[in-house]
């Protein structure tokens, strides 16, 4: 079973997305802010991270930067509202794999995750 991390400071977003992913057969772990995401990803080794940009403690950009510095290769999908092209470019530069706009279109999200997992290769 694939393990997806949902990193968002909004409880509602975590629950909503988490529940949807669970019903689609994923294991879900939650992170309540960027710092939490960095800490937990080292321990729980998710196959993919859904990362919000605007969070307290450590924002999405800084999470990406930390991953890059640490050489963490977990694929990251940024999901955020009102994304400006400049920060989009910045995120890709820092190694983000994909982008989804909020409010999230569930099918698109599933598609993006699937694409990443296909690249990673099959896993039981």
């Amino acid at each position: 079973m694939y393990r997806i991390m949902v990193a968002d400071d909004s409880w509602l977003q975590r629950k909503k997305i988490g529940k949807f992913l669970q019903t689609n057969g994923f294991e879900v772990i939650e992170a309540v802010n960027g710092k939490d995401a960095v800490e937990k990803s080292g321990v729980d080794m998710p196959d993919c991270i859904l990362l919000d940009l605007l969070m307290p403690e450590m924002d999405g950009i800084e999470v990406l930067r930390t991953f890059q510095q640490d050489g963490t290769s977990i694929p990251v999908i940024i999901f955020t509202a009102d994304i400006q092209d400049t920060s989009r470019a910045r995120c890709f530069e820092l190694g983000a794999t994909d982008f989804i706009n909020k409010p999230i279109d569930q099918d698109k999200m599933l598609e993006a995750i699937q694409k990443i997992l296909d690249i990673k290769g099959d896993k039981d």
């Binding site: 909004s10 509602l12 977003q13 605007l54 969070m55 307290p56 509202a81 909020k102 409010p103 999230i104």
Partner: peptide, 16 residues
Amino acid sequence: ALFRVLHTIKGDAQVL
């Protein structure tokens, strides 16, 4: 910080 609070509330409200 205040911007972030409003932004999160907006995002949640959009979900609903």
